[in-house]
Design a protein around this nucleic acid. Sequence first.
DNA 1: CAAATCAGCCAAAGCGCTTTGGAAGCCTCT
DNA 2: AGAGGCTTCCAAAGCGCTTTGGCTGATTTG
Lengths: 340, 340
Amino acid sequence: MNLKQLSHMLSLSQTTVSRALNGYPEVSEETRRRVMDAAKRHGYRPNPSARRLATGKSGMIGYVLPTGNAVDIDPHFVEFLSGLGDYARAHELDLVLSPADADDEETTYRRIVANRQVDAVYVSSPRPADRRLALVNTLGIPFIVHGRSEGFDFDYPYLDIDNEGAFHEAARLLLQLGHKRLALINGNERETFAIHRERGMRRALAANGLTLGERHIRSVAMTEENGYRAARRLLEENEPPTAIVCSSLIMALGVVRAVRDLGLTIPGDLSLVAHDDVFPWLRPENFPVPLSTTRSSIRLAGARVAERLAARISGLEEGARGEVWPVDLVVRGSVAGAPS
Amino acid sequence: MNLKQLSHMLSLSQTTVSRALNGYPEVSEETRRRVMDAAKRHGYRPNPSARRLATGKSGMIGYVLPTGNAVDIDPHFVEFLSGLGDYARAHELDLVLSPADADDEETTYRRIVANRQVDAVYVSSPRPADRRLALVNTLGIPFIVHGRSEGFDFDYPYLDIDNEGAFHEAARLLLQLGHKRLALINGNERETFAIHRERGMRRALAANGLTLGERHIRSVAMTEENGYRAARRLLEENEPPTAIVCSSLIMALGVVRAVRDLGLTIPGDLSLVAHDDVFPWLRPENFPVPLSTTRSSIRLAGARVAERLAARISGLEEGARGEVWPVDLVVRGSVAGAPS
DNA sequence: CAAATCAGCCAAAGCGCTTTGGAAGCCTCT
DNA sequence: AGAGGCTTCCAAAGCGCTTTGGCTGATTTG
């Protein structure tokens, strides 16, 4: 059932039917009703390919997926996706994943924009002065950044959580408990979120006249193994930290294992706080010692990004609005006063 | 730069240029070379929307993503996706995720097929007599199932691992070590993979004149918490199992925690084997006691599914070919002889 | 009362590609 | 020399939508 057939049944022109369906004003209310009715009854659905060719709009949002042998998509992605899907489902938006060589995403961005394959894109895990942002900004496709970049002379729309504030609060709590030697096990130091977290922690320390020594900060990919290694290195030093803040629950698993291996205890010998993106399959309250966390649901962020993308596509949202979500600090058993 | 302009520059018809580019025989080699050359030089890329409208082919593969508030996409998905991306990138295939209400995926399947949005789809986590299979089979779109279903009167193309064989081997090993009371912590019992695993284990037990009691099998969603709860229930019984086989590494985390909480040890009091889908962020060799596993890379499966989908789209693969991958049994420190 | 306005509809021209149904030119064969 | 067969190209008809530029008849305006 296509437009031609439908308009023929109604003894109307394709023009009128099309306009009736798309809510244009130059069609009488009665006619519109007739058309809408017939369309529903016959299950008419405009062919998206044809519509796309005519309008250039695809009804899909895009994401350039970095891939490669050495590239692992991390599990945060799937939670974000869940949220995105929650919103997209309700609005019949589809998501297009365009796999790209992790070393050359630019070509792929250019392709999907030139081909008008998607109406908008989102960019995630940005770095300072991330070239992808500059690119999508000049390409002129609606976009939203999940996270933030820095060092640009233009503004851009984003959704981020207050990573600096979160880690500032976490560190402040530990300091109040009397800890003097804090350490940070961070994510990839080239990503902005990691920079912000470090900054928040340094700020808290500075306020107490302390600093974060070079040796007390580790930046690694967020795996259990890396968490373990980082923790061992830290804890086997001369003056080991009495508190660790850690950028992910998965790394925290490794930290807990290291602590055990060394015959230490949490929170007796070490206080631990980790960031929790709220995975359904791994919860901080179920750690051997319930884990204190800075918590922010990445899934909710996904839904919000989808919502804003939809708004930008339809012109409801404009400009470079940035949105920063506060982060909860949830205190559980893994923190205690500094050992004397 | 579109076809019209290009053909104009070359003083050729659009027909000829199109045919030259698409490798049709009715064009002289010299002309083809000229055309190819000019196309490359001017960076001509056919507009996919137009091509799609004309041919009905989209160059994309589809996946219907079940969503909903109570629905969690599990982290296996992202690993599978990585593999799929690895292949798709090299072949300029895009992936379309169509979020659907988890209770009604059918509507979405019908939509993407009717709209010709994708050239092929894959279906994952099938259940016995899964309606999605019957649907895509009758809808006539090329597809591949990741996993298997059962109870149909038709065959279908799939890629699966030998879940039954894997768990049979795992159980056999434990039996050889003298264990008599085995337990299974399985995934959702309604999915075929879980059924196969249970079957494999029962077969090994039966060969030794043993059975898997109702109380010694748990089927739950694969989270750390569920692993913990299942293990506690099992281990707090009168005659607790001396060995557990577990369907995922994430649940195994919970099992390990339960064992610790109860003051037991691995492998002294309990031998443990788990299935490992090969996550980069959580490795069995890094468990407190290195974990024995049945191992199969879900990422490689993703790449293979993409490859076969591409083959089916281009007509290179036909029929209902099923492919079953063997699973490695990797023995590490978490298994030992049964306690006396 | 003629002119101007307006609501409501339509025919046709795109969008950029593929594919059908020739046609021209050149050989070969009888 | 004419018929038949290749090779190589082309014009034009789609694919199914949106949108431009009218056209008609009824209503308002000066």
